[in-house]
Computed example of a mutant assay.
Amino acid sequence: MRQPAKFRARCLGLALLVLVAFGWRSAALADDLVVDGVVALVNGKIITKFEYDERLRPIYEQTRGRQLSTDELGQIATLRRKILEQMVDDMLLQQEAERYKFKVTDAEVEEQIKQFIAKRNISQDEFNRQLALQRLTRPEFANNMRRDMIRHRLIGGAVSNKVVVTDSEVEQVYNERKAEFSKDSMIQLGIILIPSGMSPTELKAEIESGRMTFAEAANRYSQGPGVGNGGDIGFIAWKDLAPEWNAALAGLKPGQITQPVHIQDFAGLLQVISLKEGEELALDSVREQIYQSLHEAKFEKVFQEYMQKLRDKAVVDYRNL
């Protein structure tokens, strides 16, 4: 059974990484990080306060000199918990990798990054520019890539039995979304990256009710790119969209909004601003692309089920929070 050709790596191709614009209580916290102590034990292995603070550092630094409202502090408390839960999940994956003796070397990660860049036909300079736009360093991108490579290896056996993409499914997608698989077909997108504590479903309903426009909501609430420009992030080639974005946008017309999508651990809304159709391609020329998109979506579902089983049987002790 074929495995997905591209790893998400929570990565480029406009699957944007946004850290957050809301922060912790005061600038003083950015200079007073505790470098010892334990915040959680995961099956007996520790997550240190230092490691946790390092993950939170962007939040501290973005709020240097700011005073936050009670609502914002509540949102930050929720965000801190989400970040810790993500660290717990990472630890569970690491433990599973050790149990099954899975290893991903630095050389393998670098080779995967080279393939990632080559498939998108971009230069190293453009790759670095995209990382900078996403506030993501190359080591952070490499670590994300490594985690995704381990993830795929960990559940490869389960996926081979549970993830099946048929020819009829591929053909159905092609017929329903021909415009997306045309040569040089592009989509102009608006994006809202929603602060922790705000309901994306409720915000979507408010926009669709006409109480505010998507652009107004983006300028008021978004924590991501396009703020001040109504959330508009310009034209993107369909082929460069992450699979989950592609699936969420499938069949939408200009002005319509997706169901909530996830970027890292944050919720977001996408709006189709306009579509630019290209030259229609034959099914055989895009069959593999459609297959990979469907396979990746099914793979993600299996992975979430796998992670839930790991969480259910794990012994996690939270401390000093």
Rank of each mutant, 00 (worst) to 15 (best):
A5T: 12
R8M: 04
R10C: 00
G13L: 06
L17W: 05
W24P: 11
S26E: 12
G37D: 05
V38P: 03
V42Q: 08
K45E: 15
K45P: 00
E51T: 08
E54M: 04
R57T: 06
E61H: 05
T63G: 15
T70N: 05
D71A: 14
V88C: 06
D89H: 01
D89C: 01
L93C: 08
E98G: 04
R99C: 04
Q112H: 07
I122F: 09
A132L: 08
Q134V: 01
N143E: 14
D148F: 01
V163Q: 02
Q172F: 07
N175T: 12
K178F: 05
D184P: 04
Q188I: 01
G190K: 05
I194K: 09
S209V: 03
A215V: 07
A217V: 03
G226W: 10
N229R: 15
G231E: 11
I233S: 11
A237E: 15
D240E: 14
A242S: 10
W245L: 13
Q264C: 01
Q264R: 07
G268T: 13
E279H: 11
L281T: 15
L283A: 11
R287L: 03
F299E: 13
K301N: 07
V302T: 03
E305F: 02
L310V: 10
A314E: 10
L321Y: 10
